[in-house]
Each structure stands twice: as C-alpha cells, then as structure tokens.
C-alpha cells in the first residue's frame, strides 16, 4: 500500500503575511495521490490551487502540516527534511501557466540544462533533449531562443524540460492556457502516458472542463481546502 502512494499531504496550512495583511491560502489541505494517478485540481481563482501545487513542488514551504513524497517525509511544516534542490531535480517536473524558459538558452539547452544539473553528460542529455522536443513536435525549433517561439511552442519546450529527468511527480499549473485545444490535449495525453507508463503522479490545475476525461481523479479547491469533486466525477474516466 505504502509503495503505491506517490504524494501525501496532511493538515497542510499556508499563511501569507501577518496581522492586517494575513491571508490563509491553505487550510488543513489533505490529499493522497497514488503512483500513476492523474489528478485534476479545479476551483475558483484565489482558492489556493497554485499555493498547494508549489507547496508539494517543494518551492513554497507550508506554514504547518507535512508532505510525503514516494514514502519519504520531505517537509515537516516549514522545515525541509531532505536536500530540496536535489529532490526537485530528480523527482519533480514542473510546467506553469507561463512557460518560464531561461531566455539566454535555446529550446534544446533549456531541456538539456535540467539533465546536466543532475549530472548527465552533455552528449546523453543532448540526445534526450532532442528526442523529447521531437516527441512534442518542436524539434524544428530546437536551436531557437524562447523569444523566437510562440506561447504554445514555449509551453511544449517547458513540458519537455519537466519530463527530462523522468520525474515521479509532474506538477502543472494551467499548462494548456496558452495552447489551442488540440495542442493542449496533446500535452495532457503526454502527461497521462508518462504517468501510467512510469508510475508517476500528475497534478494538473485546469479550467478546461472539456478535457476532464483525461484525468483519473478530480478534486476541487475552495478557500484553502481540498475535496473530491463529486459532481464532476461522472465526466471522468472510471
């Protein structure tokens, strides 16, 4: 049972600011995601979706609560329980609303850097970067700088970077906002394929209710808490 759990959060709370400007973005958020499970996170703006995603992505420490990834306790409140940069580059792949590519690296180099900082050789990382770019249909843009790519192309390069190190957790915050529905669908399918084949867990924040059939489970966030979106479950896969 333990082996099949990819991500588990318990009583996750995040408070921004203090006094008058205090905002409680997460309120005892609890969620368990199995390996190979593809999860959608819905909810109105300001519900705390991004905060939740960055917390389990280990780039935004919670105020209290615990995060366990792959059976390992990684955050105990605001305190890291592991080498976070190393854990991030080996286990977590990120895609965000804005592609967030490094502007002075070409598309290929943006994918390659994720592998090189994890100790890959230049040659191996280069080959894999080109494979991923080909798979995502942007091989012809491999030697272009991000500024010369369309929003959709940038997003696909970012997806390639997220998948480069074969992460066990894929986190995506409205990744398809900049893509047309066909390309958006393609990226989602890819996440699903990787999740199912490699046993990774994927958490995707989305507003696109037409594409919900891709997901195994759908959760809704409201006011900092997570609950299953029972009303929408009928649309999803079994």
């Amino acid at each position: 049972m333990l082996m099949t759990i990819a991500i588990q959060t318990e009583a996750l709370t995040k408070v921004y600011g203090s006094g008058n400007t205090e905002v409680v973005a997460l309120r005892d958020a609890a969620l368990t995601i199995r390996r190979g499970e593809v999860v959608a996170l819905l909810g109105p703006s300001g519900a705390g979706k991004s905060t939740f995603l960055t917390a389990i992505g280990l780039i935004n420490p919670p105020t209290s609560g615990t995060i366990t990834i792959g059976g390992k306790l990684v955050m105990d409140g605001p305190d890291p329980r592991t080498n976070l940069p190393k854990f991030r580059r080996q286990h977590i792949g990120y895609v965000f609303q804005q592609a967030n590519l490094i502007p002075f690296l070409t598309a290929r180099e943006n994918v390659q850097i994720a592998m090189e900082i994890d100790g890959w050789s230049g040659r191996a990382s280069r080959r894999r970067a080109l494979e991923l770019l080909e798979y995502l249909g942007v091989l012809d843009r491999a030697e272009f700088y991000p500024s010369a790519l369309s929003g959709g192309q940038q997003q696909r390069v970012a997806a390639a970077r997220a998948l480069a190190n074969e992460p066990s957790v894929i986190l995506a915050d409205e990744p398809t906002a900049a893509l047309d529905s066909h390309r958006g669908r393609q990226v989602m399918d890819l996440f699903r394929k990787v999740a199912h084949e490699k046993g990774a867990a994927a958490v995707v924040v989305t507003h696109d209710h037409r594409a919900l059939d891709v997901f195994d489970t759908i959760y809704e966030m409201e006011d900092g808490t997570v609950r299953p979106a029972s009303s929408l479950l009928s649309h999803a896969h079994p």
Binding site: I59, P85, K86, R88, I102, I113, I117, D118
Partner: peptide, 15 residues
C-alpha cells in the same frame, strides 16, 4: 528571475 527558475528546477548552489 532566471536564477530563481534554475533553482526551481533544482540547480545546486554551485551552479
């Protein structure tokens, strides 16, 4: 911003 991004994808301090 780029340095933050590098940190996000897990670049160690020495990079």
């Amino acid at each position: 911003h780029d340095l933050a991004m590098l940190k996000l994808i897990g670049a160690p301090k020495r990079v």
